[in-house]
Each structure stands twice: as structure tokens, then as C-alpha cells.
């Protein structure tokens, strides 16, 4: 496979992974108004748990220390990862969602992010500390036995399928009465509860499901790059997703998809291979992050609704509309 094709296929997988992440964030931030400033932590937890579930028991040979080591097949490992992310989301929600002010949730998430990052680094027995886990078997490859090129296309199909399913579900949630109630809570939680909506429970649902999305995306990444270390999920990644969602259009899953393409894929990848400035390897990534931070602010100033704003709900095939129309024509 030519480097160009390889690069492009990689981008496709990344696009799928970012799309899933942005949809999850859209459920939390765009739909329910939950300010989760450490979304990437849930992504990482999903990735780690997927990885250590697929790896065998740690042995001296691999020179890694980690928990589980269950030799599980990928789909089940992915479920373990998704569950772990969801459980962490539940725990964070238990502490932070009872207070209505968004500051508190944001503070708790920032703190959880810092503490989990610390914890994973310090407790090397968990996910092999700062070195991270590596050598995770390629999903299904032992039974498929494909050559690397074909396998890449297989993985595109696999992530594509997961993305399709999760996308469908994201759209369904958004368009369901559940999505409507979440938006009502985002607009005014007092009003929602005056109509019998338990805003704590509903926000918790959005929190957990959003985190599960992050966990699955993390698991898919680990399945693809077969490694994960703390350098791969620094706080900056959360900003990238916020920038994607805000630019694309919060509260709109198509917007989230567009944003996932524009920011993490097009912008981030397009600048990833800019020539390094000798002796200043950090300069280009730093400038890139500055642009992401600036973009976040600029979008909120110039076009807070994003490129594809949230759309008004449509209810096709309503009899009443026809009756009214008929009545008008007769009258």
C-alpha cells in the first residue's frame, strides 16, 4: 500500500472515532447542557479497559504491568471498555449532577481528569504507567489472518459499522422524547421539573451514555493503533472535540459530524505533517493548539450556533395540519 493510501485510510478510521466522540459530547453538552471538561478521560478509560481485556496475562516477556489481561475477543473487550467509561461517568455524575450550576460539574470533571491522569501514571500496575500498554492484538486478525493492507480496509469497515450504528442511535436519541426532554432541561431545569421531569436522572442518562460513546471510541482507537499511553490523551484532546462540536453546530448531530471532519481530521491532520522547526519540535503542535483554543473562542463570539445550527423539530404526517388546511380551503 502506498504511503498516501495508508495515510488516507488511517484518516478515515480517525474520522469515525472522532465522529463517535463528538456525538457523545453533543449528547452531553449540546443536548443536555452538561459541561464535561474531561471528556477525553472517558475515552482513555474505554481504551485502556478494551486494551487490557484483549491482552493476555502480563508476563515477564512483555515487560508490562496491567490489570485484567483476559484475552477477550474484541467485541466483548469493547463492551468492557464502554462499561468502564460509563461507570466512571456515573460516579462523576453522582457527585456533580445534583448541583444545578454548571461550574460545579466543570470543576469536578477537571479535577477528575487531573486525578485519573495522575493515578494512571503513578500506579504502574494499572495500565503500565507512563509507558502505557502496547502490543494489543489486532481485532479478529488471528482468525482472519489478513495481510496488513487488507486488514486496514477490514478495520475501516468494522469502525464504519460501529459508527453507523452509534450514529443511528445518536440521531434516534436526539429526535426522541428523551432528547426533547434533555433539551428542555438544558433550557430551563426548573420548568422541566415543574412538569414532572427528574432533571437529575435525565442528566445522568445523558452523562453516562455520552461517556459510553467516549469509551467505545477509545476502544476502537486502541484496536487500531494497538497501544495507548498517557501521552495520547492529554487534556488538549477534549478541547479539540469541543471546538469540533461548536464549529460544526452543537445540538445538531450532522453538525457534530461536520465538526469531527473539519477540526480533528482536516485541520489537525493537515497540520500534523508540517515540517518541524529544527530544535523546536513543540512549536508546531503548540501553535496548532493555540489555534484550536482561539477557534473555540472565536466560534462562540461570531457564530455560537455553529455552521449547522440546531434544527427545529419536525413532525411529518400530522393529521391536524391537513384538517386545518382543508378547513381553510373550504372556508
Amino acid at each position: 500500500m502506498s504511503p498516501i493510501v495508508y495515510y488516507l485510510t488511517t484518516l478515515v478510521v480517525f474520522f469515525f472515532i472522532f465522529a463517535i466522540s463528538t456525538w457523545g459530547l453533543n449528547l452531553q453538552f449540546g443536548t443536555a447542557g452538561i459541561l464535561n471538561f474531561t471528556y477525553i478521560t472517558f475515552f482513555a478509560i474505554g481504551g485502556y479497559f478494551t486494551g487490557v481485556s484483549m491482552l493476555g496475562r502480563p508476563d515477564a516477556l512483555s515487560n508490562m504491568r496491567y490489570i485484567l489481561g483476559l484475552n477477550l475477543p474484541f467485541p466483548i473487550a469493547l463492551l468492557v471498555g464502554a462499561t468502564a467509561a460509563g461507570v466512571l461517568g456515573l460516579l462523576v455524575g453522582l457527585v456533580a449532577l445534583r448541583r444545578l450550576r454548571s461550574d460545579y460539574l466543570a470543576i469536578v470533571t477537571v479535577s477528575v481528569g487531573a486525578i485519573v491522569y495522575d493515578f494512571v501514571n503513578v500506579n504502574t500496575g494499572l495500565f503500565n504507567g507512563a509507558d502505557g500498554i502496547a502490543g494489543i492484538p489486532y481485532p479478529f486478525n488471528d482468525s482472519l489472518n489478513l495481510d496488513p493492507n487488507t486488514y486496514t480496509f477490514f478495520y475501516i469497515a468494522l469502525t464504519g459499522l460501529v459508527t453507523l450504528v452509534l450514529g443511528l442511535l445518536a440521531f434516534r436519541i436526539y429526535n426522541s422524547p428523551l432528547g426533547r426532554t434533555l433539551r428542555a432541561i438544558r433550557e430551563d431545569a426548573d420548568v422541566a421539573s415543574a412538569f414532572g421531569k427528574d432533571s437529575y436522572r435525565f442528566r445522568m442518562i445523558a452523562m453516562v451514555v455520552g461517556c459510553v460513546y467516549a469509551g467505545i471510541a477509545g476502544g476502537l482507537l486502541v484496536g487500531f493503533i494497538s497501544a495507548l499511553n498517557p501521552g495520547g490523551w492529554v487534556a488538549g484532546e477534549t478541547f479539540l472535540l469541543y471546538a469540533a462540536l461548536l464549529l460544526g453546530g452543537r445540538g445538531n448531530n450532522w453538525g457534530a459530524l461536520l465538526g469531527a471532519f473539519l477540526v480533528p481530521v482536516l485541520f489537525q491532520e493537515a497540520t500534523r505533517y508540517l515540517p518541524q522547526i529544527p530544535g523546536h519540535a513543540e512549536l508546531i503542535p503548540a501553535l496548532r493548539n493555540m489555534i484550536v483554543g482561539g477557534l473555540l473562542i472565536a466560534v462562540l463570539w461570531f457564530r455560537p450556533e455553529g455552521i449547522l445550527p440546531e434544527r427545529k423539530a419536525k413532525f411529518p404526517g400530522v393529521e391536524y395540519l391537513k384538517k386545518r388546511k382543508a378547513a381553510l380551503e373550504v372556508g
Binding site: D103, A106, G293, L296, I297, L300
Partner: peptide, 11 residues
């Protein structure tokens, strides 16, 4: 809050 969050990345 998102603005200050974005500012933190920038700075």
C-alpha cells in the same frame, strides 16, 4: 465557562 476553558488551552 467554555471561553475560559478555550483560553486555558491557548495560554
Amino acid at each position: 465557562l467554555v471561553v475560559t476553558f478555550g483560553l486555558s488551552l491557548f495560554l
